[in-house]
Simulated scan of single mutants.
Amino acid sequence: MDVKGIQGSINFDGDWVTITKSQAGAAATATRFRAADVTGTRFKSATTFFNGYLQFNVPGSLVDQEGRRNRRPTAADRHRLSFRKSANAEASQLLAAVEQARG
């Protein structure tokens, strides 16, 4: 199961979640963790004007600081990916599959 995001993608094979990010001028970096290690998730669906995001909380991840103005995870967080409105359905299906695998 794959979700194409902005400057990256998320892949879930039933056990492992792999988030691959590529930034301009840099090599792609991949972060891989087991679905069983996920302690929490955050999902915000995209709209016409704003991108959505999917964030996984795992031991050692950057947890979003409360009180930030827009309350969105930072781009430096390796355990989250932003996506466009066209990927809302795929992102919610991937989230449901990860939540079920956590279970």
Rank of each mutant, 00 (worst) to 15 (best):
A28H: 05
S82P: 00
R102Q: 11
Y53C: 02
S61Y: 12
V17I: 14
A35S: 13
R102K: 14
T29E: 15
G5L: 06
S9A: 09
F83M: 08
S22M: 07
L81M: 11
Q7D: 14
E66N: 11
W16M: 11
A24R: 14
T47H: 06
E90F: 01
K85T: 07
V63R: 14
A35H: 07
L95M: 04
Q7N: 15
A24K: 13
F33E: 04
G52H: 08
L94S: 08
G103S: 12
T18I: 02
Q65I: 10
H79G: 01
F50A: 12
F56Y: 13
V58R: 07
L54A: 04
A35I: 02
D77G: 01
N70V: 00
A26V: 02
G25I: 05
V17K: 07
A75V: 01
A97I: 01
T39Q: 14
V98W: 01
G52T: 04
I6G: 00
G103D: 10
G5N: 08
R72S: 10
A75E: 15
E99N: 13
E90N: 08
G52S: 08
N51Q: 14
K21T: 07
V3P: 06
F33C: 04
R32Q: 14
R69C: 00
N11S: 13
K44A: 09
V98N: 01
I10L: 08
E90K: 11
S82G: 04
A76G: 12
D13E: 10
R72I: 00
S86D: 15
G52R: 09
S22I: 06
F83L: 03
G60K: 06
R78C: 00
V17C: 04
T18D: 09
N51L: 02
V58H: 05
